[in-house]
Nucleic acid binder design. Structure first.
Lengths: 213, 213
DNA sequence: TGAAATTTTGGGGACATTGCAATTTTTCAC
DNA sequence: GTGAAAAATTGCAATGTCCCCAAAATTTCA
């Protein structure tokens, strides 16, 4: 059985509110738009907005859901004989090379990031999500390598991998905000990834190698 | 001429408000204390509180001022023949070894961090300060090495050094919160620093070496 | 079709933060 | 010392986020 009318309407309402809000935010900035305005524009009550979104920031980052385990997924999907760091590097290269929106390589991303840049609370939320990603990765590494409880390696390795990802995303954001085209930024980002890989030590590059075959 | 009565009173008032606030925060948590309560306890008006502190978080982190250029200072003070990363590692080791409050090795730090842990806005503020530290370090590295404008190395190196510092501070905070004694945490932290140094690549360990004598 | 479950809404309120004007305190020239 | 100028403190009102609760509207399902 699929889903009833109620579920469908709920999803639609939620989506609609999110869309309306995002539109307003992109147009006028995060702080300049009030929840009351969003509610009115979406033709619902303020309470309904809060019914779907715990906080104002959630309205903006609604589409960025399911990014928490991004790095973890890369690691879990690493190939036989491949280390955690190299798997992440490979996946990131693929996304950068294919000029994927997943790494912000798309027209309009600059608009998005400018809004974030202009609001402390959005930046805070972004950092929070990045922190979550890091912690998720640490847990995954601990799990995948079967490291003991007191072993600091998973945390350290997660930190190094996180550095790669963070630096990549920050750089892309900066370049996009600077007005560069996705294709151009893609090429620069590939160079950056090469440089970062060269800065990683052998021990990092070899951590969490999946048993061959 | 030193300072007039006015300046002195201002500083006293500011300090008193901050002290009263910190006391309340440590006692009952950040969110559970209102600005109005602080104002009343400090026997001033709410507006006076806002006169000295732009936001509630500033009341809590008032003592943590001047930490922005912590890493930068370490780098600038590096010795002849010493690299940026090694200078930071050395300074951190010294502080950890001497069980210094500067790295959180002091009874009561656990209390402080628990409050931070319990409040999203305080965490956000902490991340913001860490971000500032990173950016400050990048600028310093760029300056000290005379790197070209498009050169990504200062940013990458700042990232690596920042990883060391961040990981150290986070670990110390966790251990302190877990109830360990400063002396014990100090010993663990020294081991951690060794492990991190071993994970840094030669290129990182050799970046920004100050010309010998 | 009507009761139960769920969603939406209205109203009230706590609290951070800001702006403005009135009031008090401190400074400083005379 | 005294009084005006400068600065600090205060009170008051308002905005905006977010929470809680109870009433009203909508949807589900026996």
């Amino acid at each position: 059985m699929a889903e009833g009318l109620r579920e469908r309407k709920k999803r639609q309402t939620r989506q609609y509110i999110s869309d309306v809000a995002t539109g307003l935010f992109l147009e006028r900035g995060f702080d300049a738009v009030t929840i009351a305005e969003i509610a009115e524009a979406a033709d619902v009550s303020v309470n309904t907005v809060y019914n779907y979104f715990p906080a104002k920031e959630d309205l903006f980052f609604d589409r960025s859901k399911g990014v928490v385990d991004r790095l973890s997924r890369f690691v879990r999907a690493r190939r036989a004989g491949e280390s955690a760091a190299l798997a992440v590097l490979r996946e990131l290269r693929e996304e950068v090379e294919s000029v994927s929106p997943k790494v912000g390589l798309i027209d309009g991303y600059e608009r998005f990031m400018k809004v974030v840049h202009g609001s402390p609370s959005l930046q805070a939320r972004l950092w929070y999500m990045q922190r979550e990603q890091y912690e998720d990765l640490e847990a995954t590494l601990r799990e995948e390598t079967g490291a003991a409880d007191g072993d600091p390696m998973p945390a350290l390795m997660a930190g190094q991998i996180n550095w790669v990802h963070q630096t990549l995303m920050t750089t892309i954001a900066q370049e996009m905000i600077a007005g560069r085209k996705p294709a151009v930024v893609s090429r620069e980002a590939l160079v950056l990834l090469d440089e970062m890989e060269e800065l990683l030590s052998e021990r990092v590059l070899n951590y969490g190698v999946r048993a061959a075959g």
